[in-house]
Structure formats: structure tokens, C-alpha cells
């Protein structure tokens, strides 16, 4: 959910909308915002599953410290989505375990 208007910060700044792909589904995102913000805005909360028990993990610290938000981005696993900016056409997928190719 985007915060479109805000009593102190005013209207949401205008930025360029781009398309990215998440697990095969196309969503809209603002260029340059963290990938994690775009996913939350699209209602996606599970970013990866743990190595052994495949438990869900999502955003936790939002400042690059905890690594809970890691996903596979353009084929590269272990990308911290909370501090990685969106680029047009990015392909993002839920990371399973360490993100080894199956």
C-alpha cells in the first residue's frame, strides 16, 4: 500500500514508473525505490524461504543489516532487496535456500 498523501510529507513525489517481474508476474514499481518497497506496495510479503525448513522470511530491518530480505535478482542470489534500487525490467524471484540453481 502506497502512502499517496500525507499530512506532513504531502503528496507522494512523482517518479518514473517501470515494470519489473516477480516470480513471473509483472508489477509496476518506481524506478530507484528499493525493490522491497515495490514488493510490499504490490502486497508481496514473502521474499525467501530458509535453507533447511523452507520457512518464510520477509523484510525485517529495511537498512541492509539483517539479510532477511534476500532474493534472487536477475539470476543473482542473496541480493538485499531493501537497499537495492529498482531498474526497468528486473527479474526477481523468491529465493529458496541459498539460491542454488536447481
Amino acid at each position: 500500500m502506497r502512502i499517496k498523501s500525507h499530512p506532513i510529507l504531502g503528496d507522494i513525489p512523482k517518479r518514473k514508473l517501470v515494470k519489473i517481474e516477480v516470480d513471473g508476474r509483472t508489477i509496476e514499481a518506481f524506478e530507484g525505490e528499493p525493490i522491497a518497497a515495490a514488493l510490499l506496495a504490490a502486497g508481496i510479503k514473502v521474499f525467501r524461504r530458509t535453507v533447511k525448513r523452507r520457512e518464510p522470511r520477509g523484510l525485517f530491518c529495511t537498512i541492509g543489516q539483517c539479510t532477511d530480505c534476500m532474493m534472487t535478482v536477475n539470476g543473482m542470489p542473496n541480493v538485499r532487496t531493501c537497499i537495492t534500487p529498482v531498474e526497468e525490467g528486473m527479474e526477481i524471484s523468491t529465493q529458496i535456500g541459498r539460491g542454488e540453481r536447481s
Binding site: R2, I3, H6, L9, P13, E33, P34, L40, T62
Partner: peptide, 8 residues
Amino acid sequence: LINVHRVL
């Protein structure tokens, strides 16, 4: 999230 990235 809310104040910088404007997402709830």
C-alpha cells in the same frame, strides 16, 4: 518504510 519510501 513509511517516511522515506512511502509504503505501509
